[in-house]
Amino acid sequence: MSTSSLPPIVTVTLNPALDVSTSVDRVVSRHKLRCDAPRVEAGGGGVNVARTIVALGGAATPVYTVGGLTGERYRLLLHQEGLPGVPIPIGGETRESISVGDRSQGDQYRFVFPGPTVTAEECRRCLDAAVELLRPGGYLVASGSLPPGAPESFYADAVRLAKQRGARCAIDAYGSALTLALAAGPDLVKQSVRELGELTGRELSTIELQDAALHELLDGSSVGAIALSLGAAGAALAIRGEAQVLRAPAFPVAERSTVGAGDAFLGAFVLRTVQGRSTGEALRAALAAGSAVAASVGTTAPHRELVERLEREG
Rank of each mutant, 00 (worst) to 15 (best):
M1I: 05
T3E: 13
L6K: 05
T11Y: 11
T13F: 04
L14V: 13
S21F: 02
T22I: 05
S23M: 10
D25P: 00
R26D: 08
V28L: 10
S29A: 15
H31Y: 06
D36A: 15
D36P: 00
A37P: 09
P38C: 11
V40D: 03
G45Q: 10
A50T: 02
A50S: 14
T52M: 01
V54M: 01
L56K: 04
G58V: 12
A59E: 14
A60W: 03
Y64C: 05
G67Y: 04
T70P: 00
G71P: 01
R75T: 01
L76W: 04
L76G: 00
L77A: 09
H79Q: 13
G82K: 04
G92W: 01
G92E: 06
T94L: 10
V100K: 07
V100Y: 01
G101K: 02
S104N: 04
F111S: 04
F113Y: 12
G115Y: 01
A120S: 13
E121P: 01
E122K: 12
A129G: 03
E132D: 15
R135F: 01
P136K: 02
P136I: 07
S143P: 04
S145T: 12
A150E: 10
Y155I: 11
V159R: 08
R160N: 11
A162I: 07
K163W: 02
K163D: 09
A167F: 11
A167N: 04
A170V: 11
D172M: 07
A173Q: 08
G175A: 15
S176C: 02
S176Y: 12
L178H: 06
T179G: 10
L180W: 03
A181H: 06
A184Y: 10
D187M: 03
K190S: 12
V193H: 12
R194L: 12
G197Q: 07
L199S: 08
R202V: 03
E208D: 15
L209Q: 14
A212F: 06
H215P: 03
L217D: 00
L218Y: 05
D219T: 11
S222A: 14
S222Q: 15
V223D: 09
G224A: 07
A225P: 10
L228P: 12
L230F: 07
L230T: 02
G234Q: 09
L237D: 07
A238V: 10
I239S: 14
I239C: 08
G241F: 05
Q244N: 11
L246T: 13
A248G: 05
A248M: 14
A250G: 08
A264Y: 04
G267R: 06
G267L: 06
R272V: 00
R272P: 03
V274I: 13
G276H: 11
L283Q: 05
R284Q: 12
V293W: 03
A294G: 13
A294V: 02
A294N: 03
S296L: 05
T299D: 10
A301K: 03
L306F: 07
L310R: 09
G314A: 15
